[in-house]
Each structure stands twice: as C-alpha cells, then as structure tokens.
Design a protein around this nucleic acid. Structure first.
Lengths: 169, 169
DNA sequence: CGAGTGATTGTATAACATAACGCAATCCGG
DNA sequence: CCGGATTGCGTTATGTTATACAATCACTCG
C-alpha cells in the first residue's frame, strides 16, 4: 500500500526524487550566506568541491572529487581536495561517511551538524536524517558510565525503497 | 595463585578495570563454543588474531595486528590478517570501528552483534554498549521512508571517565 | 581415489590520507 | 599604501588502509 506521508518537497532529505538544479542552487546560496555571516573564506577550490558533491548527490571518495576538481583546472594533488573537504566538513557543509570513507554534501546546511545517514548498499545513495532522538538514547547510557560524548557517528546500511522494489531480495 | 577473581570482571563492558587474563580466557572459550556449535572453522590464524585483539583490549589497525601475527610465524601479508578479521567480524567475534578504521575484540560474544561504541579520543580506549534503544529510534524513521536497515554503525566519540578526571578539559 | 570446498599464502596494486615545504593571496594595523 | 601576519594553495613525497587475483594445500564426501 501507499506510504502514509506525502511530505514536503523542499525539505526532502530522503530517497525521493527532487528538483536537482534547484537543490544545488539552494544549498550553495545557503552556504554562501553562512560563510559571509561567519567570516569564513569560501574560496574557489572550496566552492568547486562543494559544487561537485552537490551535483553528484551521493557519497564520493576524495579521489573521485579530486579527479573532477583537477579537470576544472585546480590542483590535482590529494592535499588540495582533503583541505577543502576538511573545511566543508568542519563547518557542517558536507559530511564524511565513515562507513564508506567518502564524502557527501550536506542536504540541509545549518539544520543539524551531525545527522544520521542511511546508506543503500545497492545504489550507494545516502540519505540524511535527523539523529537527535537516537543520540539522546545513547547519551543517557553514556552519562551513566561517565563518558562525555562530543560527537556521534550514526550510519545505517541497508536497501533504499527504490532498490528494494527493483530487486526484492 | 592469583587466579581467583571477583566476578565483576566478566560482565564489565565499560571503562572500568578488570581481570584481563580472565576476560581473555572467557572470550576465547565462548568463541570456541560458538564455532563448534555453528560448524565454523576456528583456524590457527583466526585464533591468533582474536587472541591478539583480546590481549590488546583496544582498537588496533589491521597492520598492527599483522605485525604481531607475523612475529608469531604466520603469514606477513595484508590479506592474511584481513581475511581473519573478516571472519571474526562477520560472525560477531570482533568489531570494526569505522571511525578509526580499526578492529577490536567483541567484549561479549553472542550478546549483541552490532553494539554501539564509545571511543575515547584521549586514550583511544573503546567501550562497547548495547545499541538496541538507539537503533529502534532510527528504525522508526527508516521505516517511514521505506528504507530497510540491515546494519547500523553507532560510534560515539568523546572522553572517557578516566581521562576526563586526569585532564578536565 | 578423485572431485569439490574452503582456507592459506603471496604478489601486486588500488584506495585513502597526511607531512612538510614554499609561494601567493588576503587581511589588517599603521 | 605598506609591511607583517595569517591563511590557503600547489607540489613532492610518503604513509596507511584495503582488495584483486591466482596458485597451493587440506580436508571431506561420494
């Protein structure tokens, strides 16, 4: 049967299709604004890397990004891309998917610095979802043992709706 | 002899000290039993790798394990250790800490195949903790979007009780 | 015995990541 | 505008993590 929630398109952070050109423009401008406000230098390399990640809209290895980047005339050595990725990740404009050793543009800059991710093992699509509830649960356990949590990685691996339909186990 | 120990140790899964020799023996024998029951081949290499992980009692890179392993006269090439680690991880006898690209022996074989971890960034100690509650929360969100979760990585990074006390920020 | 299965090993290479250096652009107080 | 401080960029080199591929060994089942 149909799923219950036909939800808002512009905030879509799941696996549904969306207007891609629009989502790129929106994300770029959101990041631009945040950089301006925060006195951060949104340099050409950083901008290019973010654009690459947004355009692909999936987790990319650093070297895949680098390939694109150098094709655009930027430096072609690993440190170039790693520095840009560090900048983007540390300011919440992109995320590192630890499970894949790969990077993805943030789907909603400014909303949640450390979301949870759902990774489709078939098509490698990665969807972002709020992680606050799960983090709270974990925080309770940690607190009891005296552990101070600074950051939590939450990554679910499985099969996305599209792939489950296409190739039912 | 010193063999007699308060049994606080056998259930310890946090940061507290414990009887290490006892915990190694207990874990090895638990794994041995499970392999026998399940028809799994607990070969010398696999046994040696698990022993190394248990002895160190912290997350180790594959190449650190390999060094120990080859010092014991086993093969000294990466695939040797990766195969053994794959076996241990896939059967729940060890875990991969994605955040560190490192491996650690399971603290409670048979109890929870995919626990959550608390990683101390100061001393690199890793504690295992049940993750069921947090996974449930996430499962609810995933279900709503049609994503089928097969495995969830939950890794909290922070400061353990011991280190927080030693160097309070 | 002989075929099949699964483990072990080794070679080679792929993929991911950082150290260290010097130059260039940018920022900022004077 | 000038000059120093800071930050980013490009490059060389290297370190670390992981897998593809193929040959060999050992055990089991028919």
């Amino acid at each position: 049967m149909m799923a219950s929630t036909p939800n808002q398109s512009s905030l879509q952070r799941g696996f549904a299709k969306h207007d891609h050109a629009d989502c790129i423009v929106a994300a770029m401008s959101a990041v631009e604004t945040q950089c301006a406000d925060g006195g951060l230098r949104f340099t050409p390399v950083r901008r290019a890397v973010l654009e690459i990640l947004l355009r692909e809209h999936r987790a990319m290895g650093a070297y895949a990004v680098l390939e694109d980047l150098s094709a655009q005339g930027f430096g072609s050595q690993p440190p170039v891309v790693y520095r840009a990725l560090d900048f983007l990740v540390s300011h919440g404009f992109a995320h590192k998917i630890e499970r894949l050793n790969a990077f993805i543009a943030c789907a909603a800059p400014g909303h949640d610095d450390t979301p949870a991710f759902m990774i489709c093992r078939v098509c490698d699509t990665v969807a972002e979802t709020p992680s606050a509830p799960a983090r709270e649960e974990l925080g309770r356990v940690a607190e009891a043992s005296g552990f101070v949590i600074e950051r939590t990685v939450i990554e679910a691996e499985g099969v996305c709706p599209g792939c489950a339909e296409a190739a039912p186990e």
